[in-house]
Design a protein around this nucleic acid. Structure first.
Lengths: 207, 207
DNA sequence: AGACTAAGACTGACCGGTCTGTTTCGGCCA
DNA sequence: TGGCCGAAACAGACCGGTCAGTCTTAGTCT
């Protein structure tokens, strides 16, 4: 009986790896996928827990609330995005000018990935209240930090490339990327990157 | 008794203007404000109807569903946005080159308006499912039409301004604007327009 | 034995949508 | 001018379902 139950569990439970990730880890990963793909409001707690094979006790014991889980997910999403993005760009070569140009292929590899659901921060901002209260303050703050980290990275590249106003150049480059991301999210057409590449070249030359 | 009740009704009923707009009109206007400000998912039918002073029968008799109301609201929002945007730009002067430059002040007057909640189409796209199914097809289509109308307008301006590739120039200009809109929505800082203005100048010169 | 976890019943609120009445109001006829 | 009628709109009860969040129970590990 016990053996049968164990066998049943092993057959039904998803267990490709010898050891499953801890529950809160599974919750975060599933929540990340669902929040990004279907939206935060549209994703219920129960769905996350079912797909993660976790219980409400675990969720509320570890995170305390859905909003806290959202914060955790956004923090991880932002950190991983920056990690891969920066890595792709620095790998473009030793010449900083090449690195700034490499932002476009970096976006391309993101856009063409299996799971492109747009910028998580843009999506979160879009589906939260935007009234005079300014929406959730923590979201504003997290977004600002994400933004600042990218600007800082681009600024070092611009400075190394010899631009007179590296900070302004970084902001200009990021604005080009923001446009491409927004357009891609709305249209789903990777062709916007060709237009973005032209804009980027114009901006880099004029700087 | 009957008089007291009548007096009560007259005092409680909101009737400041001699003639109110028809119910479906009030519903659309209230829904537009709430959908744009708080998001579509976050705005319930009951709230719209309460603020509009309308009943569910009216809503479902006129529109049929919440989704149909969303479509109606997005169509109106897009049409009015284009109307005011195009008017601001054509009013910039007889020189088409000035008109293309005037897109930035046009955005500024939008951003600084009392009710800026970001681009309604970006917001709608962000809070709808983005899975492999591609989200709601009608939303994709409406967005594409809105996009195409703006591109067509900018293309005539670019052509009149003598650019060799007016269509590409229109797409480039719109991408600059998209970036500014997305950045403004996320950060709430009107300063992005200064960066966008630089980008636009670079793009127009390089064209 | 004790900590952790899954499972899930449960609460109160809200969701979109349907349905039944009641009120209001403008046109019409005498 | 006054009474009447029918369409439109209002009000709100009601439905099944889902929401976020709490709590109890039972099982599974070390």
């Amino acid at each position: 009986m016990a053996d049968a139950l164990t066998a049943l569990n092993e057959s039904t439970t998803v267990m490709p790896s010898p050891r499953r990730a801890p529950p809160h880890e599974r919750i975060i990963e599933v929540a990340r996928e669902l929040f990004c793909r279907d939206g935060i409001h549209a994703t219920g707690i129960d769905r996350i827990l079912t797909e993660a094979g976790a219980s409400k006790m675990t969720l509320y014991g570890r995170f305390g609330s859905k909003e806290a889980l959202v914060r955790e997910v956004l923090a991880r999403e932002g950190a991983e995005w920056r990690e891969t993005f920066f890595a792709l760009i620095t790998a473009a070569g030793p010449d900083p000018a090449d690195c700034l140009q490499a932002t476009i292929p970096a976006l391309r590899s993101w856009f063409e990935g299996a799971r492109f659901y747009g910028c998580a921060f843009m999506n979160a901002a879009a589906e939260h209240a935007k009234g005079s209260s300014g929406g959730e303050p923590w979201l504003r703050e997290m977004t600002a930090q994400h933004h600042a980290a990218i600007i800082a990275f681009l600024e070092t590249q611009a400075q190394a490339a010899g631009y007179a106003e590296p900070r302004m150049m970084a902001r200009q480059v990021l604005l080009v990327l923001d446009g491409a991301i927004a357009a891609m999210m709305v249209s789903g057409d990777v062709g916007v990157l060709d237009v973005a590449a032209r804009n980027l070249r114009a901006v880099l030359r004029a700087g």
